[in-house]
Amino acid sequence: MTTSLPFSRPSTSDIGDIVTAYAGKLMPDVQMQTFSHTHEIFPTRTIKAGAAVSALPYSATRLEDMPIPANGKTYDLFDYVSQNRLVGLLAIKDGQIVHEYHDQGVGPETRWMSMSMAKSVSTTLVGAALLDGHIDSVDDQLVKYMPELGGSGYDGVSIKHLLQMTSGVSWDDTHTTAGSERRIMLDLQVAQKPGEIMKFMASLPRIAEPGQVWNYSTGETHVVGALVKAATGKWLSDYCSETMWSRLGMQADAAWWLEAPDGLEVAGSGICATLHDYARLGLFALSGGVIDGEPVVPAGWFKEATEPRMAGGNPLNYGYMWWPVPDRDGDFSEGAFSARGIFGQYIYINPTRNIVLTVLSCRSKPKFSEAILDNDFFNAVVDALG
Rank of each mutant, 00 (worst) to 15 (best):
S122W: 03
S122N: 00
T123W: 06
T123Q: 01
T123L: 10
T123I: 07
T123P: 00
T123V: 03
T124C: 08
T124F: 10
T124R: 10
L125G: 12
V126R: 08
V126K: 03
V126D: 08
V126N: 05
G127W: 04
G127P: 13
G127T: 11
G127Q: 04
G127Y: 12
A128H: 03
A128K: 07
A128C: 04
A128E: 07
A129C: 14
A129V: 05
A129I: 06
A129E: 14
L130E: 15
L131M: 09
L131Q: 11
D132C: 05
D132S: 11
G133K: 10
H134A: 03
I135H: 14
I135A: 07
I135E: 05
D136G: 12
S137M: 10
S137Y: 14
S137L: 14
V138K: 09
D139V: 02
D139H: 13
D139Q: 13
D140K: 13
D140N: 08
D140E: 05
Q141V: 02
L142S: 06
L142Q: 14
L142I: 10
L142F: 02
V143G: 12
V143D: 04
V143Q: 02
K144C: 09
K144L: 15
K144E: 07
K144S: 13
Y145Q: 05
Y145A: 11
M146R: 13
M146N: 02
P147M: 09
P147N: 07
P147S: 11
P147E: 03
E148Q: 04
L149H: 12
G150E: 15
G151K: 06
G151F: 04
S152N: 03
S152I: 04
G153P: 06
G153W: 09
G153N: 08
Y154N: 07
Y154C: 10
Y154A: 13
D155N: 14
D155R: 12
D155Q: 02
G156R: 15
G156C: 11
V157L: 12
S158I: 09
I159E: 06
I159W: 05
I159C: 04
K160R: 15
H161V: 08
H161E: 14
H161W: 06
L163I: 12
Q164H: 10
Q164S: 05
M165C: 06
M165L: 01
M165F: 04
M165H: 01
T166L: 04
T166W: 08
S167E: 03
S167P: 12
G168W: 08
G168N: 13
G168D: 09
V169E: 03
V169T: 07
W171C: 04
W171E: 00
W171R: 05
W171G: 00
W171S: 09
W171Q: 03
D172Y: 01
D173S: 07
D173K: 05
T174Y: 15
T176H: 08
T176E: 15
T177Y: 01
T177A: 12
T177M: 11
G179A: 02
S180D: 11
S180L: 00
S180H: 12
E181C: 06
E181M: 01
R182P: 01
R182V: 00
R183H: 01
R183Q: 10
R183P: 15
I184M: 12
I184Q: 09
M185T: 01
L186H: 01
L186D: 00
L186A: 06
L186W: 04
D187G: 15
L188C: 00
L188S: 00
L188M: 03
Q189Y: 14
Q189G: 09
V190A: 02
V190P: 00
A191N: 05
A191C: 00
A191M: 01
